[in-house]
Design a protein around this nucleic acid. Structure first.
Lengths: 251, 251
DNA sequence: CGATATTAGTGAGTCGCACTCACTTTGTCA
DNA sequence: TGACAAAGTGAGTGCGACTCACTAATATCG
């Protein structure tokens, strides 16, 4: 991680090497000056890696700084606290993800299919970014400052896709009209979160196709055993037949 | 909180009052000696209050010790770390709660009703112990040491009630036989957790009757509008017409 | 009862880490 | 070239979790 010799060394201040009698120069070279935006991106990247690797509490700001090649104080020049840093890391990630939801959704017909697509997409995100999801679900959601943060608003926008699909389904007559979209949303995202907990903890796999199908299936059709329409019709017919017999006899 | 003068003061060690020139004696009197079990209970109680009031991170072990009237080191004599203390607080709470689940359940007939009862009971717990639930859902679940802890096992036993009800429902023919009980469990508990988040954050109310009904309803009957209803109604009408004819003739 | 072992309790620490701030260095622009 | 702004520094400070060598109250036993 030594940057010695990578940049010119003129005008080294006197106190830098003061007290050093040996030839080596363990004093670190100041990091190359770089624009604010670039530094912010560097720090975000290093922070993301650090948080993902160790979780929030175990992550060290000093380690993040070291990865970037700057000193701790520099990190605090751009981010007020460690928590804010986590917040920005997650916001940055969300921005990456957003784009193609609307586009993907546009290509699918039918409320039920669209619902299943959203469930599947969410599961795919969980599968592909387990550590970031872990941070999002546990570290951040627990924060008292969660509500009111920009990330909270982003999350609302994200889950909005699902409540919209529900509402469209109701309007189209495909779904019952006595549903609470918000409750459905909570069942889906909360359910997925719970179900993925084992996987997020590092154990087992996540069969996203199967689970997406199973969730959409339960939500759409319910758990109560249905008499198939065939059975129902047969029963109705039997009733009709009986009634007709009675009718004949009584006449 | 001063205990000065409540116990004899013979043989006070020399360094206790060393350096004190004024008359007051701000040196604290040692806490009265008490059995290990009693101390553990005292500490658990104070810790529960502290964690509930401030959340895990903001809670101070020194404050817990002060509430009990002992010194910080005493707390660490009985609990190795702050996290273990949280763990034991939650375990202690779980033990309180367990008892009457099986009893309550025994009084209800029908898988659907039993399911709704479990949902309602869980919601009631969330409503009555919001801070403890907050700790359970966020602080503790996030912990990497969650799995393998006694509390985890207790939680499994708790949610087992629900998967049992599902399985009984399947066996009784009331529920579909292609369900995954574990997935249902995750939808219920995860969904409730998500839905209660606002309430847990201190905003709004929790209408547990309405929500319990709504969740049970969605899960049981699904969200899809039944297509067979049109056909069924026509057939029902045919039956009604026949019955009316019979009624007329027989009168 | 007195000697000894056991255990509750102490408090002055250490240590790690988030966060601060007065300062230096570098780049920019009149 | 001198002044100003912005980037970067590193030696702190403070706080709170955790430790440990010790003191003193109680239990045990001849």
């Amino acid at each position: 991680m030594s940057r010695i010799g990578t940049r010119r060394q003129t005008r080294r201040p006197a106190d830098r090497s003061a007290g050093r009698s040996d030839g080596r120069a363990p004093v670190r070279e100041p990091a190359p000056r770089v624009g604010r935006e670039q530094r912010v991106l560097d720090i975000l990247q290093a922070a993301r890696a650090e948080f993902c690797a160790k979780g929030y509490e175990q992550a060290l700001v000093s380690e993040i700084a070291a990865q970037v090649g700057v000193v701790e104080g520099t990190v605090y020049k751009y981010f007020a606290t460690k928590r804010e840093l986590l917040l920005k890391v997650l916001e940055h990630w969300y921005e990456e993800m957003f784009g193609d939801y609307a586009r993907d959704l546009a290509g699918v017909e039918g409320s039920r299919q669209r619902l299943q697509l959203l469930i599947w997409r969410h599961l795919r995100t969980v599968r592909d970014y387990p550590q970031l999801c872990q941070l999002m679900f546990f570290e951040f959601r627990a924060d008292r400052a969660y509500r009111g943060s920009e990330l909270y608003a982003m999350n609302r926008r994200y889950t909005r896709f699902l409540t919209d699909v529900i509402e469209e389904g109701i309007a189209a007559g495909e779904f019952r009209d006595d549903l609470e979209p918000a409750l459905l949303r909570d069942l889906v995202y909360g359910g997925i979160e719970h179900h993925a907990a084992r996987y997020l903890g590092g154990e087992g796999e996540l069969d996203i196709d199967r689970i997406a199908r199973a969730i959409a299936d339960v939500l759409c059709d319910g758990i109560v055993r249905r008499r198939t329409s065939e059975t129902l019709r047969m029963e109705a017919q039997r009733l009709i037949a009986l009634a007709e017999q009675i009718d004949k006899k009584s006449s």
